[in-house]
Design a protein around this nucleic acid. Sequence first.
DNA 1: GTGGCACCTAAGCGCTTGCTCACCCTCCGG
DNA 2: CCGGAGGGTGAGCAAGCGCTTAGGTGCCAC
Lengths: 214, 214
Amino acid sequence: MDSAADGSGYQAWSEVTPDAARRLLVAAVEAFAERGYHATTTRDIAGRAGMSPAALYIHYKTKEELLHRISRIGHDKALEILETAAAGPGTAAERLDAAVRSFVGWHAAHHTTARVVQYELDALAPEHRGEIVALRRESDAAVRRIIAEGVGAGEFDVPDVPGTTLAVLSLCIDVARWFSTAGHRTPDEVGALYADLVLRMVGARPAAVPVVQK
Amino acid sequence: MDSAADGSGYQAWSEVTPDAARRLLVAAVEAFAERGYHATTTRDIAGRAGMSPAALYIHYKTKEELLHRISRIGHDKALEILETAAAGPGTAAERLDAAVRSFVGWHAAHHTTARVVQYELDALAPEHRGEIVALRRESDAAVRRIIAEGVGAGEFDVPDVPGTTLAVLSLCIDVARWFSTAGHRTPDEVGALYADLVLRMVGARPAAVPVVQK
DNA sequence: GTGGCACCTAAGCGCTTGCTCACCCTCCGG
DNA sequence: CCGGAGGGTGAGCAAGCGCTTAGGTGCCAC
């Protein structure tokens, strides 16, 4: 299992600076994604990074700090993806399509990272969790904004905007749980499938996606 | 935190005897749901059940056996819900509506149990995981059957049946992650919302009004 | 009354955990 | 050639883990 095994051919983590600290962080992502935070030992992380257990504590105060850094970077990236799409050009349908497509694509391509980011929230210390939860609320707001604008413009038919927003995000996030590189779908294919499904959920009138049926 | 605190006013677990074994199992569900399997100690489980740590081992060989029993019972219930709906009367749309409504309702009402059942699969021993995965495939098959029949009958418009099936199940399952009794939605409301969203995803034509199209 | 049984506990064993500490490299400016 | 700093290690500590074992207690048939 090498560093570029799954979706990690991804040049993020470039912001993590001493090289050794980055190797430890990447090792931690792999380990947390495979076994979960609590089932991962600091010895395992250090071992994957080719270091002794003690080396970890030169760069991180605790195991939880590693998780927090991963979670923070991942949530920043996820939020950036959604806000970029939300602020983009085009109709609400086009922006929602772009948002879902890129958000889902990221969750599939970097499903190891995404799994840690999305499913290990409870393992964060309370003060760190608060910070992360705030980012998640911003993600929710970005999606809700697109949907609300689509409703306002008469493009969408959505009886329950907050509920639909919740469902859309939930659907996208859960990709990180089931997606596997062993499966036969590429991240782009999943993104396209999900974008279509979400547009149906909001009752989008066919805008630029002319599916001429039968 | 009492026994009937959340969705556990649910007379399931009635199949678990003797009484002490059931108390331990209910305690384990609560603990696993709150902190996750790996972060839960056998002392915590025994303590919640009002027993000494050793008492656990009279009724269960290992901590993993507890998880397996919970997972097995929960998956049996989930599968039963889906198959009942799939085999029911009515159009495909009516059956899909019923399936999603009851499946989501169960996940919301018993979100503690559902969280353990749906998100602690990796913690199962390999032979137990195999058994559970087989049950999950049956659940997938039940939903796919309804969707495929709807497509066959011209009721639904679904370009990618396996993909849509996956997305529908994923959407429903993820309810267990975010649902909280502190939220302002009842399980029935979430079920209704989700049933509507899923019918949109499959492009269901209004069932009662058999539109003869183009 | 007594033996057998089902159930439960106090104590603790062997091991692993997150984390620390004393020490050791290698590099580099003066 | 030296001295200090940043990055690393081997050994190990205190605590907590899953699980075991020896023994106690109430109950019931006989």
